[in-house]
Design a binder for these strands. Structure first.
Length: 207
DNA sequence: GGTAGGATGGGCT
DNA sequence: GCCCATCCTACCC
């Protein structure tokens, strides 16, 4: 199967070289700053990689949409731990979603990665995502991208500042505007403006 | 182009 | 027992 070429615009080049790994200090900041800062960065898992084009912030305090809202449990303890770690959870009994923990240790806050623009290892991603018919379907959703990258609950609690699963700065310049909308698929706090996406990027989960 | 409905299991009341 | 931070298929314009 031949994928249609991606449209022109602010695109990462395929087989691009990446910059340095985002370090602990990057994540040890307010969750919204981390969510915005992750846009344009490259999520790498082994040979597969994609540029982050859509994120959502899940806060502490009175954000009742957050899994951390009802306190520390065996599932949510990672969110209260040190920043720069992966929080991966099972959703609808079938799919897995990847978050990156923000805020100082002890303070809850995490960023859901909602969509990637595939960059490297696209054939491998295709083999992991047989249902994807177009390049734009490969990683354009929180569970699609974990399938494409091979991320599972085995990575829950993993340190994303070192190891197989990391986030890197892109090299070179890539200017874009950040669009802000309410988060998708939640009941509580449904109108809070905590979804961030690269404006005009065709690989987001929805417009 | 669009959407209704089903899959499927862990977390929490 | 109910609720999901979802995706895919079938079916209908």
């Amino acid at each position: 199967m031949v994928f249609r070429a991606p449209p022109p615009g602010c695109r990462p080049s395929q087989n691009m070289r990446f910059g340095p790994i985002l370090n602990r200090a990057f994540y040890e900041r307010p969750t919204v700053e981390v969510a915005r800062g992750l846009l344009g960065a490259v999520l790498v898992h082994g040979p597969a990689a994609g540029m982050i084009v859509e994120t959502e912030a899940y806060l502490g305090g009175d954000d009742l949409a957050s899994h951390s809202a009802r306190g520390i449990t065996s599932r949510t303890q990672v969110i209260f731990g040190p920043p720069g770690h992966a929080y991966v959870y099972l959703i609808y009994g079938m799919y897995e979603c990847l978050n990156l923990v923000a805020e100082p240790p002890g303070q809850p806050g995490c960023v859901l990665i909602r969509a990637l623009e595939p960059v490297n290892g696209i054939e491998l991603m295709r083999s992991r995502r047989p249902a994807a018919r177009r390049l734009g379907d490969l990683a354009s959703g929180p569970a699609k991208l974990t399938m494409a990258l091979g991320v599972t609950r085995a990575q829950n609690g993993a340190d994303v500042t070192r190891g197989a699963l990391v986030v890197r700065r892109p090299t070179g310049k890539c200017a874009f505007e950040i669009e802000v909308t309410p988060r998708i698929g939640i009941g509580e706090c449904a109108d809070w403006p905590l979804r961030f996406l690269i404006r005009g990027n065709p690989f987001v989960s929805r417009r």
